[in-house]
């Protein structure tokens, strides 16, 4: 089957999750073209995407696609899927992908599965495995329409290494389609170093921190480990920290090497966003908290005392093993 991928940009580069989709598409395309669609990108991205697994790259250059919104995306992706005969359309499961996927599905008369953790082919049909019920269960859906639209969670498949010898075709879109929605303003949170999605180490805080002050205790630990600070949903909803820090079902999906959960009970909707971390460490006063069932190491105790001691001890460790 021919596969279309909606490529999300992080700054000027394709997001890791988008590159992972290219790798998945190569395994499912079975020799048919893998088509990447990128809007508002530098034209040089065509080569990058081909090197990462695309056979065709449809690109709306940032000089012409100056005002991109979800309506523009939905129209361009629908057109590209039709023109290139894609019977599978993939997008990362982020606000970007979760926004456009259902719309594409209706426009393409497609079956739709969101938040997938795997897509497999069986007897000519596609099976999409996805998390439901706050991440507590997995359901396997057989897709019954001719076309499938799916969003995938990050960190499930490995992106292909760049192969600059790969050949492909670049197609430049001449002008953006009309849009029914208008973007008036974008408020980006001040980018402080590494993004949660790319972080190797994340120190995340939950309700147990007790207030915004609690996050100040986590920052030195994150800093000592070269990591960043995240949060579960409760502290975000209570305005203890920025919503952009939210990890979980309705927040970000992260896949760090090390995830330190502080004062987080481990509700399944939070674990849906961090369950793929390589090592989880939990610090919580409640020894029965669900987070300890996910954790390799656990400390039951007051984070305000444990975390500074842990931070100091990590700083004192010899640099090399």
């Amino acid at each position: 089957m021919s596969v279309l991928i909606a490529i999300e940009l992080t700054g000027e580069k394709p997001s890791n999750a988008s590159l992972e989709l290219l790798a998945l598409a190569r395994t499912l395309a079975n020799g048919n073209p893998v088509v990447a669609l990128s809007l508002g990108a530098d034209v040089g991205l065509t080569e990058t995407l081909i090197a990462r697994g695309a056979d065709k790259v449809v690109l709306g250059a940032r000089e012409t696609f100056t005002d991109i919104n979800s309506d523009v995306w939905a129209t361009c992706a629908t057109d590209a899927a039709r023109k290139h005969g894609a019977t599978l359309v993939l997008a990362p499961h982020t606000p970007f992908g979760a926004d456009i996927a259902p719309r594409l599905a209706f426009r393409l008369n497609a079956a739709c599965a969101t938040g997938c953790v795997s897509i497999d082919r069986q007897d000519g049909a596609l099976l999409c495995t996805r998390a439901a019920h706050g991440g507590n269960v997995r359901e396997v859906l057989r897709m019954k329409a001719r076309v499938t639209v799916a969003t995938l969670r990050a960190g499930v498949y490995d992106a292909l290494p760049a192969d600059t010898t790969r050949k492909g075709e670049g197609i430049i879109l001449t002008e953006p389609p009309p849009s029914r929605i208008r973007v008036l303003e974008r408020k980006r949170d001040a980018a402080e170093g590494v993004r949660l999605e790319d972080a190797k180490v994340i120190v995340a805080g939950g309700r147990g921190l007790g207030g915004a002050e609690g996050f100040k205790v986590l920052e030195p630990l994150a800093h000592a480990l070269g990591g960043v600070v995240g949060a579960s949903r409760v502290p975000c909803d209570l305005n203890w920290c920025s919503h952009a820090m939210q990890i979980g079902l309705t927040g970000k999906t992260v896949t760090p090497e090390l995830y330190i959960a502080v004062g987080i009970s481990g509700a399944s909707h939070h674990l849906a966003g961090c369950g793929n971390a390589k090592t989880i460490i939990a610090i919580n006063t409640d020894k029965d908290a669900a987070i300890f069932r996910e954790a390799r190491f656990g400390v039951t105790g007051d984070f305000a005392k444990v975390v500074p001691a842990l931070t100091a001890a990590i700083r004192a460790l010899p640099k090399d093993l």
Partner: peptide, 24 residues
């Protein structure tokens, strides 16, 4: 347009090692 083939609870195989000491 979709049919549920199967539904299951993902398995967890992690054993937590608790760090014990006299003080936090």
């Amino acid at each position: 347009r979709t049919a549920r083939e199967r539904i299951f609870v993902p398995s967890k195989a992690v054993q937590c090692e608790f760090i014990e000491a006299a003080t936090p």
